[in-house]
């Protein structure tokens, strides 16, 4: 039976990309009255068909996370986020070359033959001064105005 190891990875140092997104949303796209902060995570979803997922997660983190500048959190067969922000997961709906390269690296260079699939996404954590229904609506607007190009990306608000 396959299991999915979700590896949430974020920078410990200031994230310039998240700062640029916040700046653009506030100064250029009119979200200054509702948006209070933007943070960002990388998400690896690694499907394995055997092995102890906890141990495998530790091994994958050693390869995929740079502990000098990044922190991470492992979730097995689930994906959840903290309260206080709206997580918007953005992924390619066309072929994701980086995800394929990661899978090949894990399987063929590092010997993790139990890796079946790897998916990558960016999770934008949008902080608002409004409550959830309105915050989710604003998140959809933000995703469609800036975070995705619908011809290659799709998004999902992770509840």
């Amino acid at each position: 039976m396959s299991q999915k190891i979700n590896l949430r990875v974020w920078l410990k140092i200031p994230d310039a990309e998240a700062a640029t997104v916040k700046n653009t949303l506030v100064r250029r796209l009119g979200f200054g009255n509702v948006l209070t902060d933007v943070k960002k995570e990388r998400l690896f979803s690694i499907e394995v068909d055997s092995g102890d997922p906890e141990e495998l997660a530790k091994s994958f983190a050693k390869e995929l996370v740079n502990e000098n500048k990044e922190s991470h959190k492992v979730l097995i067969d689930q994906l959840s986020f903290e309260e206080g922000y709206v997580p918007v997961k953005v992924a390619l709906h066309i072929e994701d070359g980086e995800a394929i390269s990661t899978r090949e690296r894990l399987r063929n260079r590092l010997g993790f033959k139990n890796v079946v699939d790897v998916k990558k996404a960016t999770v934008w954590k949008l902080y608002f001064n409004t409550l959830r229904p309105e915050a989710e609506q604003k998140s959809r607007e933000i995703a469609e105005k800036l975070l995705i190009n619908p011809h290659k990306d799709s998004y999902e608000i992770v509840s």
Binding site: A16, E17, T20, V21, T24, R28, L29, L146, L147, N149, D153
Partner: peptide, 15 residues
């Protein structure tokens, strides 16, 4: 803008 978000995305929003 260092291709942040994706290439051209941030610059395209400038006045």
């Amino acid at each position: 803008y260092q291709d942040r978000v994706r290439a051209g995305a941030i610059a395209s929003k400038e006045p």
